[in-house]
Structures are given as C-alpha cells and as structure tokens.
Nucleic acid binder design. Structure first.
Lengths: 238, 238
DNA sequence: GGAGAGAATATTGTATACAAATGCCTCAGG
DNA sequence: CCTGAGGCATTTGTATACAATATTCTCTCC
C-alpha cells in the first residue's frame, strides 16, 4: 500500500503490540495522525485494517479503542486457525505439485539450518516458517482461504514465543514440517490435515504455557486484574 | 456506518450484482463518486469493503476492478462456509442456552409460516433464515467466527435462487432447521455439525443446478465464454 | 440530591484541492 | 515492423477545511 498509510498502520500496530497503548485506550484519529506524522486520511485507513485484524474495536458510534484480548480470545483464534490451516493442508495435499513441494522442502531446509546452529537463529527460523506455511496456502489454491487466513495469521496475532523456545522445541517444529512434507508427497489429505491441526494446537499450548509462566512470575501489565491482557510481542512458532 | 459511505457501498454493490458493471470493469473512484452523488472519500471506503467481500479486486498498483466469479470460486466459498458454519453449529450445540434455542424456534416458526402459504413468501422465508443462522452464530460465542463468516455469508454472495425454489425445497430447508434444533436441544455437537454441512452443501448444489439450467437455456451475460460469470442477484436458501 | 435539557467540546464523516504514481500514447531509433 | 524512452493523461494518495454527530458538562427544575 501507500507510504503514509503503511507507516501509520505499522506505527499504530507496534504501539499496540508493545503495550504502549494499553487495551481499552481510545484511539482518536487526530491524535494518532500527529503521533505518526501524517494526516487523518491515512490514519483512517490504518484503523480500518487494524479493526479487521481485531487489534482495534469500534463502538456503534464509530469510536475506536484498543481491543482487549483474553486468553479465551487467543484460544478462539488458534482453534479457527487450526481448522482453516488444517483444511488448507488437506487441499494442498490433494493438489500438490512438484514445484510447491520443492518450495516447502527449501523452506524447511532453511529452518533446519537455523535450528542446527549452536545458538538457533530465531529470525531465520520464523522467516522459513512463514515461507513454509505460505507455500501450503498457495498450493491449497483457494483465494478465499488466503483472505481468511491472512487476517488471522499474519496480522492479528504476532508474538515472540519462539524466542523462548529451546532448541528442542524448534527442532520439533521442523520435524512436524518434515512429516507434513511426507504427507504431501503421498497426496494424503487426511494425514496432512491431522498433522497440521496438532501442529497449530501445540503452538497454542506453547503460548499458553509461556503466558501462564509469565503471569505467575510477574503479574505486571501482561495480565490485568479481570483476566484481559494486552497483546504481547510474541511470535508463535508453528 | 455513515450515510454517504453506506449509500456508495450499496449502490456500487447493487450495480455489480445487477450486472450493470460486468466482471473486469475498471472501477475509477471519480466515476463512481459521480454516479453515487458523493465525493471520492466515501467511495474509497466502499471499495475497501467491496474488496473484502471479494466483489472487487485490486491490482498491485491499486486499481480496482469488478471481480470475476467462476463456478469454481462459488464452490470454494460454499466449501469454506460449510466448514465454518459446521464449526459454528458444533460450538453452538455445546453452549446452547434456552434463550438461543427459543430464538431459533421462533425463527423457524416464521419460516414455517412463510412456507405454508399457498404461494410461499420468499422474503419472509429469507428473513427467518437469516435470523436462524444468526442465532446459531451468536450461540457459538466466537467473535472471530462472526467476523470470518460475516464477510463470507452476508456480503459476498447474495443470489436469489430461493425464488426458483419450489415449496418442497423450501420445506426441506425448514425441515433441516428442525433437525438442527433437535441436535441443539440435545447438545450434540457432532450431529449439529453434520446437519449444517449438508444443509450448506445442498444449497450449493441447488445453486449449481439452477445455474447450469440457466446457462443452458440462455447463454447470455450470465456466463461468458471463458467460464467466468458475473455475480447474479440470487439468494441461496440454506 | 437526582434527572433531564441544552450548550460546549471533542470526534468522526465528507468534500475538495493538490501531490504522487501509474498507464498510455507517440515518436525516434534500430 | 518492433522496441523503448519520453511526455501527457488518468488515477490514486494525502492533506486540509468544514459539516455532522457524539459526548460531556452544567445548570435548571422537580
């Protein structure tokens, strides 16, 4: 998209994810425009996008606020993602091409390399992970599915749990990808779907465990009294 | 939403669905603004919404065009809807309350009334149908699911197959709703999910049959040479 | 003291002007 | 005749001013 609109989107999103704008904060267009150094017009676009990411909610009278995220909401998102990505995996297995399979193998090779290091390269891991899942989605051949998952995976929930992952957890993720490749190579949709669902839900529990650990250790701004929490800067490795 | 923005959205959407703007037509903001009697600002909002409805596609350089809908795309949308609404039904069954169940019974009673007439009231049928499915979605208790299905069911695909339905087909729809109510009353999620999936996919085949019949009878603007078609003004009764 | 009407304030919606970019057409050169 | 560079026309992006609407505060009346 355009420059100013993108800048506004990224800036506001970062402020929310960094906890700079706590859940429930009202987001006035003018104030944000000043903070981002742009006019209200691109800010309005950005707020629209953040709303579809569910990082921002709007009242019936069009006032925008930073969304509250309960653990329940996170579970909700992962459940949907497990179902939709599982469906994508099934379709991908049924339509697999040598080309797509090659891209997945390449992506997972990058992951293997990142994990093999003495101190794993989390950035490279996440990039390879992104490529891997993108290749599946592309192989699934459903534009609608891309649209639906895009607003569920890419934007809304970006955390950095992966940084807390030990080498073993990262390796398990790689291993599950290998299993997916095996299922794809055989064109077994049911198998691929099953692997993918557990792959995603395992990531949820990694998040939930980390979250419980964090909130037990230091019940700071991560978890407010009523169970709501601000979105964390966490990337979940799936 | 606001008045001008809503008018623009509805006007453009109607022009697309009525075939007034055939698939592939470029949608210039200024031209649309003039047609709708508003300025470009609300038109831009409207185009964004239509894009998320997938009635409009944008090139990488931000030009908007009326989307092409192949039968394949329609099948795609129904497959996704079957999965998501099936999931909603399962969740709803597991969380059913007397209140929600009451609303569903009331909605289906309205449908029964509309169908029982000598000449069925399709408008009342569709409204009851909408209420019925909305009650399920609400009982499912997932805001994300509402968002995902909203952009899949409400906006994107509105056809009027129901008008071609005979009383028997309308009655079958009512009957499937009754079966859903039975599953909900018993809290049987798997049963509810199964009914819902077949309910949706039956609607797809009703559409596909009607479409085949239409395009065989008069291969007019409904079906262009390459298999693409403009969206029809058709409401599918599910 | 509480409730409601109304004004004052704050916020969002729309229109318009201008800037930036994209696409198209022409024309020169091979 | 084809190709590509340049400029012109079209289209979208952004800023700003103003209008409409929502919210809040205050003051009156009960």
């Amino acid at each position: 998209m355009s420059r100013a609109s993108d800048r506004a989107y990224a800036a506001i999103r970062n402020m929310i994810l960094a906890g700079e704008l706590p859940a429930g904060t009202q987001l006035g267009e003018e104030a944000l425009a000043e903070k981002c150094g742009v006019s209200r017009t691109p800010v309005r676009d950005a707020l629209r996008r953040l709303e579809s990411d569910m990082l921002v909610v709007r009242t019936d009278t069009q006032r925008s606020f930073v969304a509250e995220w309960s653990l329940h909401d996170v579970r909700d998102a992962f459940d949907l993602r497990a179902m939709l990505e599982g469906y994508a995996a099934r379709r991908a297995a049924e339509r697999m091409t040598a080309d797509s399979l090659g891209r997945m193998r390449a992506a997972n090779a990058q992951i293997a390399q990142a994990v093999a290091l003495p101190r794993p390269d989390v950035g490279a891991f996440l990039e390879g992970n992104r490529l891997f899942h993108a290749a599946i989605l592309e192989a699934a051949g459903s534009r609608r599915l891309v649209a639906q998952l895009g607003s569920l995976v890419e934007q809304p929930v970006v955390w950095r749990t992966a940084h807390h992952y030990g080498p073993d957890a990262l390796h398990r993720s790689w291993s599950e990808h290998e299993e997916l490749i095996a299922a794809f190579a055989r064109g077994d949709g049911a198998w691929a779907e099953g692997i993918m669902r557990s792959h995603i839900l395992r990531a949820y529990h990694a998040y939930a465990d980390a979250h419980r650990g964090l909130s037990a250790a230091k019940p700071g701004p991560a978890l407010s009294g009523n169970g709501a929490m601000t979105a964390h800067l966490i990337e979940v490795a799936a």
